[in-house]
C-alpha cells in the first residue's frame, strides 16, 4: 500500500472490541456441552433434542435478536428441512450429512422466495404474513399425502451411519454428538456472520432502519440475506430432528414450534446467540420438570415463569446473569436501577 503512515493509530482497544474475541465463558459453555456426553449418559436423547431446539432457536435469534425481524412462522422452514431429509432417507439416500446440506439448501431457497412477501410492511404485517406462510405450508404438506404421508407422518426413514461409521443408537449417544457437532458448526457460522460487516449492518437495521438507508444501505436486500440464512439454519435443525428420531410428522410445521423458539430466544436473552441455546434447554427442562410435579397445571406455571422473566429479568436469563455478575464483582454497592 502506498498510503502514508498515519501519525495517530487507533488504540488496540478498538480492534479488540470490534474483533469480539472468544471469552473464557464461551469456551466453558462448549466444553460443558461436550462433557454432558460423559456426565449425563441417561439424558442424551433429551439433550440431543435440546441441541436441535437450540439450533432452531439460534436461527430465530439471528432473525429477531440481531436483525429485528419478527416471525411467527419460522417453523415452516424447520418443517421443510425435516421433510427434505426424511424424503431423501425414505427414497434410499440415507447419508446424513448430505441430507443436512440438501435440507438447508431447500429451506434456504424457500426462505429466499418468501422473503419478498415477508419483508414488506411493518412488524405486525410480518407477524401475520409469516404465520400465514407457515399455515399454508402445513396445509400443503397435509394435502400431499402421496409425498408426505399426510397426518400419519413419514414412515420408513432409514438413516445411514455418520461417515459410514457411527450408527444411531437407542441411547442417543450418536444422536447427541451429531446434533451438538452440527449445532457447534452452525454456531461458528452465525457468530462469524454477527461479527462481520454484514452482521453489523443487520444490528444497525434493527436499531434504526431509516438511518441505515440514509447511510446508503439497501435495507430490504440485507434482510432478504439474513432471512434466507435463518431459513437455511432452521431447515438444518429440522433435518437433524428427522435424522435423529427417524421420523417426521406434520407437527414440525406447527405454530407451537415457532412460538417455542421465540419464547426460548426471549427467555434466554435476544441477540446474544447463547441465550437462544440456553433458553431452548431451559424451556425443555422446565416443561419436563413442571409436567412431572403438576401434570395438570404445568402450563400455568410456565405462564408464571414467563411473566416473572418479562417483568424482573429483562434481557433474559443471560442478561440477568450478566447484571448479577457485574454487581457481585463491583461489590454490593448501593443498589441502583439499571436504565432499560
Amino acid at each position: 500500500m502506498i498510503v502514508e503512515a498515519k501519525s495517530a493509530a487507533p488504540p488496540t482497544e478498538d480492534e479488540r472490541r470490534l474483533r469480539a474475541p472468544w471469552r473464557s465463558v464461551e469456551i466453558a459453555f462448549w466444553v460443558l456441552a461436550a462433557a454432558a456426553y460423559l456426565l449425563l449418559p441417561h439424558q442424551l436423547p433429551l439433550l440431543a433434542q435440546a441441541a436441535i431446539g437450540g439450533l432452531f432457536a439460534l436461527s430465530v435469534d439471528l432473525l429477531l435478536g440481531i436483525a429485528g425481524v419478527m416471525s411467527l412462522g419460522h417453523a415452516a422452514f424447520f418443517g421443510i428441512g425435516g421433510y427434505v431429509a426424511g424424503l431423501l432417507a425414505q427414497s434410499g439416500w440415507g447419508e446424513p450429512l448430505s441430507g443436512l446440506v440438501a435440507a438447508g439448501l431447500v429451506a434456504g431457497g424457500c426462505g429466499f422466495l418468501s422473503s419478498f412477501l415477508v419483508l414488506r410492511g411493518s412488524d405486525l404485517t410480518r407477524l401475520m404474513v409469516t404465520l400465514g406462510i407457515s399455515l399454508l405450508v402445513m396445509e400443503a404438506a397435509n394435502r400431499m399425502t402421496w409425498l408426505t404421508g399426510g397426518s400419519d407422518g413419514l414412515q420408513g426413514i432409514d438413516v445411514w451411519p455418520i461417515f459410514g461409521v457411527w450408527e444411531f443408537d437407542l441411547y442417543g449417544r450418536t444422536a447427541y454428538v451429531y446434533a451438538l457437532g452440527v449445532l457447534f458448526a452452525c454456531f461458528l457460522l452465525v457468530r462469524r456472520v454477527v461479527h462481520s460487516p454484514f452482521g453489523l449492518t443487520l444490528r444497525g437495521i434493527k436499531g434504526n432502519p431509516r438511518r441505515m438507508s440514509a447511510l446508503g444501505t439497501p435495507v430490504g436486500r440485507r434482510l432478504v440475506g439474513v432471512y434466507t440464512l435463518a431459513a437455511a439454519l432452521a431447515g438444518i435443525a429440522g433435518a437433524l430432528l428427522t435424522q435423529t428420531t427417524q421420523f417426521v410428522s406434520l407437527d414440525v410445521f406447527g405454530f407451537d414450534k415457532s412460538s417455542e423458539a421465540l419464547l426460548a430466544v426471549v427467555l434466554g436473552g435476544a441477540g446474544t446467540l447463547y441465550g437462544a441455546i440456553v433458553g431452548a434447554l431451559m424451556l425443555m427442562e422446565l416443561e419436563t420438570l413442571l409436567a412431572r410435579i403438576t401434570p395438570e397445571y404445568w402450563q400455568f406455571w410456565i405462564g408464571i415463569a414467563f411473566m416473572a422473566q418479562a417483568l424482573y429479568a429483562r434481557g433474559g436469563i443471560l442478561g440477568f446473569t450478566v447484571r448479577l455478575w457485574t454487581r457481585l464483582r463491583r461489590g454490593v454497592a448501593a443498589p441502583s436501577r439499571t436504565a432499560p
Binding site: E15, L18, R19, S196, P197, F198, G199, L200, T201
Partner: peptide
C-alpha cells in the same frame, strides 16, 4: 464492503 459476512470487522 458492508456485505462481507465472512471476515471480521478489523
Amino acid at each position: 464492503i458492508a456485505t462481507r459476512w465472512w471476515s471480521g470487522l478489523t
